[in-house]
Design a protein around this nucleic acid. Structure first.
Lengths: 339, 339
DNA sequence: CTGAAAGCGCTTACAG
DNA sequence: CTGAAAGCGCTTACAG
């Protein structure tokens, strides 16, 4: 490796103290009352040589790494990979790098990941927490590390949080279906005790109750492969004749559900209307296109990063918590009837 | 922050030299002929206290960060986010963390990213290079940093590379379509000078030539939004009556193309057969399901990581380059006729 | 305005 | 087998 320039080399070449160089590089020239002439000269030299200060050394002495950890359920999921993309732009603009990792909803894996990231001294954490890591999150917070939870939260601990109004999502979905004269409205959801799923469930129940309709729910296992889910959906629809609308609690459940409906030879939306929770590129292209309860991805990412950055830059005190509930958007498409 | 334990604290508490602790922690106890008894005692203490050595300090003195950079075109794309997921598992298993970033095919952005990552001293790079960053890649290699390109390569420089046999992908696709008696086989691709797109283009042309068919190609801009692409596809199909099959050079092009075909009221596969390059979850679920030229994601990620790790661990000399061409898999589904 | 010095928490020859 | 010491490349009081 062609020996890299260090702050020391620069100091030597220019016959100044390395502290002086350091101050100039960190924009403290004025503050330290270093002459404009010298400042100029150092900056020029640095630019010419394309000098990049060693971040490792910097981190070791400042204790700041300018890295944040993005810990999601699964980086390849549509929702999370899009959040990752939006976060990336914001992070880089502010001088931060992102290390990602996937919890796969496994608390033990998550514990290990947190421990690894702590050894790296990342400055802050954005986490979709699996149930069961309350104490690790608490430990992070106790050590004054900024943590923002998103997508779902942990009811037993208070933290910064950015998430969707999931309740309103399904509630509005049911309301719309009722307006299209649906009578037998089912919910297909995951057997999950995560808050976002519970809220979607509650929103559904609340809206049905308001309209004095009977709930009809299928819960499928998180671990299911597509095929199994499709089978369970087929069976569910067969077992409950007359279902005229289904809300699917995640976008991938919707895809399986649609496949099931196709297999049964039923028509969307004439026989069954469909609403998907969480939008997806393909919903717009699918035939028929799929009505969805969309999470505003860029808005969520923006709020997520802002919440974290406010803490990182001490614009907000660590103790002061913010909870941001983003409003979902019901995007009407071809899988539901017109009112 | 509750003061973290350091190797020094441990040495003091246990009344041994910190070098001794360091050796034990790094598995050099035997080599340095440290007594089993002492080794035992230190390890036990470390485990009890949950001590994690500071990676920053470690990196600064060893010059290794155990971090790799994954630089893809766009992290939210289906292909890249899935590669990211598979790579993550491999990296963490081997003690590496991954920093991701998206080039968005912008050479200038890519240059900046590389410069930033260099300041972080990441140990190695996995990159889908945009055209125009040849000299930066060369600089990395000159500085003895392991670099593996994937998905597309840079013809002017030789590097480690893992990629698909793109030529064979479209070639086989055409062959299959010909067997289903298609006569007028079109290609919808991106206006791109990236190698993977050029290869897909060549494979298409070669197969058509073999069967003495006339090529029929639509190139759309990379920057297009879906709507524009759909419009251009509609126009293309109208302008070329009698097209009975289309190969789309990427999965997202396929989705737009399908939408166009639907808008024209044509039936898949009776009026037009469809083959998508690059598989996608939804292709299996779509109605009709979509025949695809699949890139084996886990295999690619595995080879990608292995190539990099071999270099990182000096199992292969830096100068010795490997090119791995993964074979595509034609997955027959409902959007093409049966033979 | 500038310079010498300690410190961040590790690793690793080197001496005993 | 073990310990003292230098070094990785920065930052930042402190003294002048």
């Amino acid at each position: 490796m062609s020996k890299k320039l260090s702050i020391n080399d620069i100091a030597n070449e220019l016959h100044v103290a390395k502290s002086t160089v350091s101050f100039i590089l960190n924009g403290k020239a004025k503050e330290k009352r270093i002459s404009d002439e010298l400042t100029e000269r150092v900056l020029k030299f640095v630019k010419e040589k394309g000098f990049q200060p060693n971040q490792l050394a910097k981190s070791l002495s400042t204790g700041k790494t300018k890295m944040i950890c993005l810990m999601v359920e699964k980086i390849s999921d549509y929702f999370f990979s899009h959040i990752a993309f939006h976060l990336e732009a914001l992070a880089y603009k502010n001088g931060y790098k992102i290390i990602y990792c996937s919890t796969e909803n496994d608390p033990e894996k998550t514990r290990q990941l947190i421990s690894l990231l702590r050894a790296r001294y990342v400055d802050g954490y954005i986490i979709t927490p699996p149930v069961g890591i309350e104490s690790e999150i608490k430990a992070l917070i106790n050590d004054n590390l900024p943590v923002v939870l998103f997508d779902r939260y942990l009811p037993d601990i208070s933290t910064d949080y950015v998430g969707l109004d999931n309740f309103k999502g399904t509630y509005d979905g049911v309301e719309y279906l009722v307006e299209t004269r649906a009578k037998k409205i089912a919910l297909v959801t995951l057997a999950s005790d995560q808050t976002q799923m519970i809220e979607r469930h509650s929103g559904y129940l609340a809206a049905l109750k308001k309209h004095q309709l009977k709930p009809l729910i299928l819960k499928v296992a998180f671990e299911n492969d597509t095929e199994t889910t499709v089978k369970q959906c087929v069976q569910f629809i067969k077992d409950n004749p007359g279902i005229d609308a289904i809300i699917f609690a995640t976008n991938y459940l919707s895809l399986s559900g649609i496949k099931a409906i196709n297999e049964l030879g039923l028509n969307i939306p004439n026989d069954i209307s469909i609403i998907a929770f969480d939008d997806h590129d393909v919903f717009n292209i699918y035939n028929p296109s799929i009505t969805a309860i969309a999470q505003p991805l860029d808005e969520m990412a923006k709020q997520l990063f802002k919440t974290l950055l406010d803490k990182l830059e001490n614009k907000v005190r660590l103790k002061d918590l913010s909870k941001l509930i983003i409003q979902p958007e019901l995007i009407l498409r071809g899988s539901t009837k017109k009112i």
